[in-house]
Each structure stands twice: as C-alpha cells, then as structure tokens.
Design a protein around this nucleic acid. Structure first.
Length: 135
DNA sequence: CTTCTCACA
DNA sequence: TGTGAGAA
C-alpha cells in the first residue's frame, strides 16, 4: 500500500475530525458543501474522513484565520495540486535520467569486458606467435 | 450520535 | 461565512 493510499483511507467520523481540527461539525459540513473536502460515506450515510481530509481542513482553518475566503482557498488548493503534479513529473524525469545513466554505465561495463576479452585474445595470439618462435 | 433543510445575520 | 432549530 502506498502512502497516498494510506492517507486517503476513510477512517474518521465527524466527531473525531471535530476534535482534531477544532472546527464545528457545522463548519466541516459547510466546507464539504463548498467542495473543499470530499469525505466518503458509510452505509448509514455518515461521513468518513481520511488523513488527507483532516490535513485539508487544518489548511482551510489556517487560511480562514488569515482572512482568505472560500474562493481564495479553492484557488490556493488548486495551485498546490498543480505544483504537486509538476513535482511528480520532475520525479519521473529524474527516474528516467537515472535509467539512462544506468544504461551508460552498463555499456561502459560491457566495453570494459570486451576490451578485456580482446586483450586476452592478443595475449594468446602473442603467446601463439612466441611459441612459433620457440619452435 | 449523525443527517438534512430552512431561516437568518 | 457561518449558526440555530427542528425533524428524521
């Protein structure tokens, strides 16, 4: 299981999130209504929040305290999503670069092996020529 | 306990 | 932006 999957698991009822964030249940539902969080539901239609949801709520709370309105918070979170996507892309490029480096190292290794083999042949050829002289 | 909706500031 | 009340 990846970290992202772990952070997205629906785990907490609203009463726990309330304690974790110091937000009123009313506010928490209000933020969901305005699509700042996306909690899952139980079979009884009760909200289940993930670590991600709690983190987002804490971020929302922080931004509200700083006087940012909900529209502004959405924009900020959207920007964070995009910059995170950019970081993921850079990660992939880095991995690809490493794969290319590995390939070069492999070729260098193969070249060394080829040269070793060639020098072995030279040696045995010289030995053959020398053995000819010693006849 | 939680859900939703309507009203209200 | 958020609350209170009331019903389920």
């Amino acid at each position: 299981m990846t970290d992202e999957e772990r952070r997205s698991l629906p785990l907490f009822p609203i009463r726990v999130v309330k304690q974790l964030t110091q937000l009123t249940p009313r506010q928490i539902r209000y933020y969901e209504e305005h699509r700042l969080i996306y909690p899952e539901r139980t079979e009884g239609n009760q909200r289940l929040f993930s670590f991600n949801d709690v983190d987002r709520l804490l971020e929302v709370k922080r931004l509200i305290d700083q006087g940012v309105n909900l529209a502004g918070i959405k924009e900020i979170m959207q920007l964070e999503l995009e910059s995170q996507a950019q970081l993921d892309l850079q990660d992939e490029e880095e991995k690809e670069t490493k794969r290319e480096l590995s390939d070069r190292e492999l070729r260098r290794h193969m070249k060394r092996e080829a040269m070793m083999a060639a020098s072995q042949k030279k040696t045995s050829m010289i030995q053959g020529q020398l053995s000819h002289f010693f006849h």
